[in-house]
Write a protein that binds this DNA or RNA. Structure first.
Lengths: 181, 181
DNA sequence: GGAATTTCTTGATCTGCATCAAGCGGCATC
DNA sequence: GATGCCGCTTGATGCAGATCAAGAAATTCC
């Protein structure tokens, strides 16, 4: 559950944990429901209990995927969240999803109560500092292999079209990379 | 001079400035002289009074240029400097160069004397957070045009071979980009 | 359950940049 | 002044991945 997952990255006592859960609001999301729209400010972060979500921006009319959010991960637009400025990106549920919402004000209250919650800042930052496969130092097949090595669950949760965009290649190229294993 | 240049990025009083200059040690560098070698720790930063320097790492036997340092700029390997760990990169004078050396211990003493010198940390960070033209979101000619727009002096100070490497393209491609202006 | 839409695959072609190769001009050395 | 090296340019070729196109498989929708 949430506690065991939190403990992977930080050290929270049972009472810390109880205090945190009081602020968490469960939200049930339909497929394609939007958690954060372009131009909105990211005023909350979400712990994905089940389901998945992805983050993207429009390039012309195409969705350019910038992040994939798996179950048991925190999901937010970090740059909008820390600056409380308009988000460039859109976050959308990829399937029926249950998320626990923690608002920015709730986070501040928690930190005011105990500095132990400063750890959450680090955790949230870590949740968004993943490889983005934007440079050309890796070939398409290297990027794909790197992804399935580090986050194999992605293959089960997302359509290849979305994975291809995230890996910065066309669906055709991804298909060929996979067929040559 | 140094003071006017510093004032562009921070606010230093004349007495702050006098205090700073006491710690600066002028160094005269010959062309191709090495300021920081691979594996060394970056224990000082340099303000380039005149001349220029460049930073690179070896990929196989090729020099991959990662940063170009112009006159009136601070020159350092930021990641080695802040962590005081071995540098991956090499810094080399590109021509006869005069640099003002400020050691890490001197910087700490300055900061201990007055928090105004914390500004130097930001300035040094800014000196190394330039575009590195590593992603493929810009084409070779866009990268070149971006460079001459933002740092036109580079064209006068560095051979095209080095600029090509910095711009992440071959000398042949740079030559063709330039001929089609 | 059947039609329509979307996703995925496979083949053919195109294109931009790298690589390979050759030649030229400048500069240093003897 | 000849020789050799280096930086730069220019042309020919190669290649990886994008684009275009078509069909198969899966999913959505009425």
């Amino acid at each position: 559950m949430l506690k065991t997952d939190l403990d992977k990255t930080g050290r929270f006592s049972q009472s810390d944990f109880d205090r945190l859960t009081k602020y968490l609001v469960p939200r049930q999301l339909k497929k394609n429901e939007i958690l954060l729209d372009q131009g909105q400010i990211c005023r909350a972060v979400y712990f994905i209990s089940s389901g998945s979500a992805y983050q993207f921006r429009y390039e012309d009319i195409e969705e350019k995927i910038t992040d994939l959010h798996l179950p048991k991960e925190w999901c937010l637009n970090y740059s909008s969240f820390i600056s409380q400025a308009a988000s460039q990106n859109i976050i959308k549920a990829n399937s029926e999803t249950t998320a626990l919402e923690l608002s920015v004000t709730a986070l501040h209250e928690l930190i005011a109560q105990s500095p132990v919650f400063l750890q959450l800042g680090k955790i949230l930052q870590g949740a968004t500092t993943r490889t983005q496969y934007l440079d050309n130092s890796m070939s398409p097949s290297e990027r794909y292999n790197d992804l399935i090595k580090n986050r194999p669950l992605i293959l089960q949760m997302f359509p290849l079209k979305i994975i291809a965009s995230y890996l910065n290649m066309t669906p055709e190229t991804l298909s060929r990379v996979r067929s040559c294993f």
